[in-house]
Design a protein around this nucleic acid. Sequence first.
RNA 1: GGAGAGAUGGCCGAGUCGGCUGAAGGCGCUCGCCUGCUAAGCGAGUGUAGGGUGUAAAGCUCUACCGAGGGUUCGAAUCCCUCUCUCUCCGCCA
Length: 426
Amino acid sequence: MLDVKFVRENIELVRNMLKNRQCDLDLEPLLKLDETRRRILVDVEEKKHRRNIASDEISGLKKEKKDSSSLVEEMKGLGQEIKVLDQQLAEAEQQFRDFLLIIPNMPDNSVPVGRDEKDNREVRTWGKKPAFDFKLKPHWEIGEDLGILDFERGARITGARFTLYWGAGAALERALISFMLDIHTRRHGYTEVLPPFMVNSASMRGTGQLPKFKEELFKLDGWDYWLVPTAEVPVTNIHSGEILEESALPRCYTAYTPCFRSEAGSHGKDTRGLIRQHQFNKVELVKFSLPEASYDELEKLLNNAETILQELGIHYRVIVLCTGDMGFSASKTYDIEVWLPGQETYREISSCSNFEDFQARRANIRFRRKGRSRTDLVHTLNGSGLAVGRTLVAILENFQQEDGTVIVPEVLRPYMGNMKVIEKLQ
RNA sequence: GGAGAGAUGGCCGAGUCGGCUGAAGGCGCUCGCCUGCUAAGCGAGUGUAGGGUGUAAAGCUCUACCGAGGGUUCGAAUCCCUCUCUCUCCGCCA
């Protein structure tokens, strides 16, 4: 959510931002609502002031045993007026707030202006595309041939975009989760958290999934509970409504959660394999930062995510998203795209964003500078570190061998009972 | 699921028959004094949000907030209703 005052005073900047984001939204109603709401507010506050004074007078009169009935009568009328105005105000505030909630965040100045993913810019690459002298398979073939990925039974148990993992496949997924969490906690200094996998509407609103992206979420019937689409939601909301000490920042958390996404609007896209599932595992990195430090923290967070692929020894590239491709809540986003030789393509495996104070304002996450009385909004950041299912995909495709087996990356072997090669499950 | 208790400021904790209680008292914290250092002691200060005024900061001022929402009343932290959450006991369960 943007600051109302900022919008009021920089209306042209905001209009330009909407244009750059390819977002068609007319701001006129917002300005009108703001005006209406403030007009009513001034009126009702003045009336309440009068009522407060009169109440004191009545109290005084009663103490002196004097008659107060005419004043009481008068206040009855005023009370009615206040009641009506309060209702109007509540309505105006609600509409105003609802509108503010659907305005996307301002991109940082360093973000390239562009229409869509074609205008994203490559920042750097790491490693090289591996060379093979045999015919490569996509991961779904590798997984099915080894008997470790079972798409058919996954679909039978639940439906399309659900997968059953067997044996070394299941173990590899678990190994990756442990490995990632260990690196981030032990080497990068993050605190591990294990949050609820369902959240309420307030949390979804806090991070920006609601009200605009309802159709991408799974909701529990009869409950105000939603399945988390990413750990970002529960973990960022850890501190919602809190005022943190300046000395407590930055706070760096890492969490494993499954992620549930409806993938509405993706029909027919990535239907094969593990790339696009309704349920997948992810290790997330979340930071709460001082405003002046948040872009440094973003670079660090990105590096922390990259470390995982470097340790695994898999080629990737980093891109910065342009204004037209960036998410609703983000001010700046880097994507890490991993190389998948079986499909001869790069695929997003991590998305690292700075949200500045956009989420903090929605979720009301503040801090107090030492020696100062006023509070400020923190900056929030997060990034995948990494998407586990897609990492498993990258391992299968990058470390496949001609005989159909897959080499287990060195760093994962301690987590897999020293397994060196994944062979066909008997 | 059954029975009961509770929810007040950063924390603990008062709030009488509704009326200067935004809220006593204590702790903590901040600043100052004192003191070889530390501790103790002394003094002052210490909620949040929104609005008005102000070029802005400061300041001044108003309104709201004692779990959330609604009601009664001229007036509610105090009375009534609904909901949420926490705790205790029993039952059940991983």
